[in-house]
């Protein structure tokens, strides 16, 4: 016997009883106490069959292996750089993960990356003590030039990118901006001043309305209104650029 006390897509708060009985399975963000499943955070309930999990709506970025992030160089050492990742932890980029060129010991590596530079990097390792290694060798990974960086709720990044990049691709096409979205909640944009601002407004709109249905259509309508042009729905891209 089991009773689900909340509905799919309901906002649930810590301590709230999600289900009673042994019928349901406590998924991510929930825990079992006796015969109750209880919310272990603030989140959006996601009911799939017998499993109930909570989708995070807020919270700072938690670094994960294989994530592509935008980070900022804060220190230059002898064999690498230290970067800020928009999380509680900084990361290390060693020279060998930045370039295939041969670097002499003691060489000045600031002409590759210097303090203040923004990079698109991939997290290659995260230890239990949250020591993080990143790499800028790989497709799409690079130093960023020009443009601006905005901070978004990292939990909304999947919606901002869209299925296989279709949402961000729609914004890029409508505004003519180059856009790179980091899993860590930093977004880089570059375009004409007014277009940049429209792209940013569209991204803010997605952040606000991420959990509502029909989002793609509403963003499309918003972009059409702001640019005065017809907007093509986004094309699914195989690789994030």
């Amino acid at each position: 016997m089991g009773k689900l006390l909340i509905q799919d897509k309901e906002i649930v708060v810590p301590g709230e009883i999600i289900a009673e009985g042994m019928d349901h399975l406590p998924g991510q963000g929930t825990y079992r106490e006796g015969d109750k499943i209880i919310a272990g955070r603030l989140g959006l309930a996601n009911v799939e069959g017998r499993a109930v999990k909570l989708i995070a709506l807020s919270g700072r970025y938690i670094p994960k292996r294989n994530d592509t992030i935008i980070c900022q160089v804060i220190d230059v050492g002898f064999s690498g750089w230290r970067v800020e990742t928009n999380s509680a932890y900084s990361a290390m980029l060693s020279v060998k993960d930045a370039t295939s060129e041969f670097i002499r010991r003691g060489a000045d590596i600031t002409h590759y990356f210097n303090v203040g530079d923004y990079l698109v990097a991939k997290i290659t390792n995260v230890t239990s003590q949250k020591l993080i290694d990143i790499s800028t060798k790989g497709p799409g990974l690079r130093k960023l030039h020009g443009g601006r960086i905005i901070q978004v709720n990292c939990n909304k990044v999947p919606r901002i990118i869209g299925k296989a990049g279709s949402m961000v691709s729609m914004i890029k096409n409508a505004t003519g901006c180059r856009i790179t979205v980091g899993q860590n909640g930093l977004v880089w944009l570059e375009g004409e001043p007014k277009s940049e601002y429209i792209a940013i407004e569209a991204i803010r709109k997605i952040e606000q309305e991420a959990h509502l249905s029909g989002l793609t259509d509403r963003v499309k309508a918003f972009l059409e209104e702001k640019t005065g042009k017809k907007v093509e729905p986004g094309v699914e891209e195989p690789e994030l650029r």
């Binding site: 203040g116 020009g146 443009g147 960086i149 004409e192 601002y197």
Partner: peptide, 22 residues
């Protein structure tokens, strides 16, 4: 540390616009 941001703000100001569209 903020060189890129400053250049960008100056570029926007040439179009009489700021980071928040004002």
């Amino acid at each position: 540390m903020y060189n890129e941001l400053r250049s960008h703000v100056l570029k926007l100001l040439k179009a009489d616009t700021r980071l928040d569209g004002r």
